[in-house]
Design a protein around this nucleic acid. Structure first.
Length: 201
DNA sequence: GAGTAGATCCTCT
DNA sequence: GAGGATCTACTCA
C-alpha cells in the first residue's frame, strides 16, 4: 500500500483524477487512531467555469482559498449547518479544481466509525454519502487546508482497481441550482456498490 | 417504496 | 438575512 504523491494531484484533468480515485483508500489517523475506507463514489468540480463549484467565476474567499492552492490539500466545509464535506484539491496554484469524496467502503477502524456516528453496528449507511464519510473518518473544518501527504490524512493505492465496466457516471447530486452545469456527468461511482449514495443503482 | 419536512450554522451579500 | 456540493425520520400508501 503506497501513499499517493504530489504528481497524482498536480495534473490538469480533474475528471480523470476523479475517476482514478475510485478504488483508492482514504486514510485518517487522528491521535494514532486509524480509520480508512475504499473510495467508491466521487464528484469532480472543475474550477471557475463550473457554476456548481464554490470557485465559480473566480470567486475567492477565506472559505475556499485552499481550492486555489497547489494540488494535494484537503478542502473541508460545513454544508446545511450540519454536514462536513471533504474534498481533494487538484491541479496547480490559482486553478481551483476539487474532487468531492461522496462514499467509501469501510476498511479499518470500523469500531471507531461506529463510535463517531453513534451507530450500533456496521451497515451500508456507515460511509454512504459525503456527510457520513466525514463523520465516520472524524473530518471537520479544522482539517481544511491539511496536506494529503501527512501521516494523519492521506490517500493510498493498494493496487486494487475496479474494472472499467463497473464504473458509471451521472450528473452531480444536489446542484440543481447550477443550471446546465448541473447536468454535466461529473459524478463517478461503482455500479451496484451498497455504499454509493442516492437510490439503489 | 415514495415523497416531504426539519435540523442547524457558517459564509457571503 | 438568506441559503446551501445533506441526511434522517416520518408520513402515507
Amino acid at each position: 500500500m503506497k501513499k499517493l504523491g504530489l504528481s497524482f494531484y498536480r495534473r490538469d484533468n480533474v475528471v480523470q483524477i476523479a475517476k482514478e480515485l475510485l478504488g483508492k483508500i482514504l486514510v485518517t489517523q487522528w491521535n494514532g487512531i486509524i480509520t480508512s475506507g475504499r473510495i467508491v463514489e466521487v464528484e469532480a468540480y472543475a474550477g471557475t467555469p463550473d457554476r456548481a463549484s464554490h470557485a465559480f467565476g473566480g470567486r475567492r474567499t477565506a472559505r475556499n482559498e485552499i481550492m486555489y492552492a497547489k494540488g494535494g490539500f484537503a478542502y473541508v466545509y460545513l454544508c446545511y449547518g450540519i454536514h462536513y464535506l471533504f474534498n481533494v484539491v487538484t491541479h496547480t496554484r490559482d486553478i481551483p479544481h476539487a474532487i468531492l469524496i461522496r462514499a467509501l467502503e469501510p476498511l479499518k477502524g470500523i469500531n471507531e466509525m461506529l463510535k463517531r456516528t453513534g451507530k450500533e453496528k456496521p451497515d451500508h449507511t456507515l460511509t454512504k454519502g459525503p456527510g457520513n464519510v466525514s463523520k465516520a473518518l472524524g473530518i471537520t473544518t479544522i482539517h481544511s487546508g491539511h496536506s494529503l501527504l501527512s501521516k494523519e490524512l492521506f490517500i493510498a493505492d493498494d493496487g486494487y482497481k475496479f474494472a472499467e465496466k463497473e464504473i458509471f457516471s451521472s450528473p452531480r447530486i444536489g446542484v440543481d441550482y447550477a443550471g446546465k452545469h448541473a447536468r454535466w456527468p461529473y459524478r463517478f461511482y461503482i455500479k451496484g456498490n451498497p455504499f454509493v449514495s442516492g437510490k439503489p443503482n
